[in-house]
């Protein structure tokens, strides 16, 4: 474990807590893409199947359980509890356009052709594009609530910090995993446009609006 990975995990945890707080406090999931949350639940479910087979540390297990539980709780809040506030008309990204190519790629490019490893690879590839429905929804509505932009910033920073962690591990531990690194870079690049708007607008107290 290193400070970059730890701060990445904390940022990830913070993002999830901000999202849950936003939905629970405002009793509304306006502006939140349910499709991205479904994709995240799929990412954690397929990646953390080793929860029962390999024990790394109490921290690792606790975080995995939290990520899985919170992703399903968010889906429950969006599609059941506060479904009247779910903005279905603006959450129209076709998830199959993400899941199918990622599934094929996981079968073609992986480290080991075993079920657990292919599911892990699928999860890594899917996570890199899982935010697209949410970013698409923000661009379609042309704006995002400030709390939602904080959620996206924390979520984007988590994998950006993981990239620093991979550089650190390469130089100090000699380990690297190209699948995780390339997917992580793609994932972070997808946020760049949003990061620019967040820094130039939200941090100056303005509303996050996109040029419609």
């Amino acid at each position: 474990m290193n400070v970059f990975r730890l701060s990445g995990d904390v940022s990830h945890l913070l993002a999830i807590l901000i999202l849950l707080m936003k939905i629970w406090k405002t009793r509304s999931c306006a502006g939140i893409s349910g499709k991205s949350q479904i994709l995240f639940a799929l990412v954690y479910t397929t990646r953390y199947l080793d929860l029962f087979t390999s024990f790394i540390s109490p921290y690792n297990t606790a975080m995995k359980v939290f990520f899985i539980a919170s992703s399903y709780a968010t889906i429950y809040l969006i599609y059941l509890k506060f479904k009247a506030t779910y903005d279905r008309n603006h959450d129209t990204f076709r998830m199959e356009f993400l899941v199918l190519p990622v599934l094929v790629l996981a079968f073609v490019v992986n480290h080991d052709f075993t079920p657990l490893e292919i599911l892990w690879t699928f999860s890594i590839y899917l996570e890199s594009v899982a935010i697209l429905p949410q970013l698409f929804m923000v661009s379609k509505t042309g704006q995002a609530e400030t709390i939602t932009s904080h959620y996206l910033f924390a979520l984007g920073m988590y994998r950006a910090l993981y990239i620093v962690n991979w550089v650190y591990r390469y130089y100090f531990e000699g380990f690297y995993d190209l699948i995780a690194i390339i997917a992580g870079v793609v994932q972070t690049v997808l946020y760049c446009d949003f990061f620019y708007l967040y820094v130039t607008k939200v941090l100056k107290g303005k509303q996050l609006t996109l040029p419609a």
């Binding site: 995990d9 790394i56 990520f67 480290h111 892990w120 591990r169 380990f175 690297y176």
Partner: peptide
């Protein structure tokens, strides 16, 4: 490439 030990990352 040297693989990360059994995916010890989240």
């Amino acid at each position: 490439n040297k693989r990360m030990q059994k995916h010890d990352e989240l």
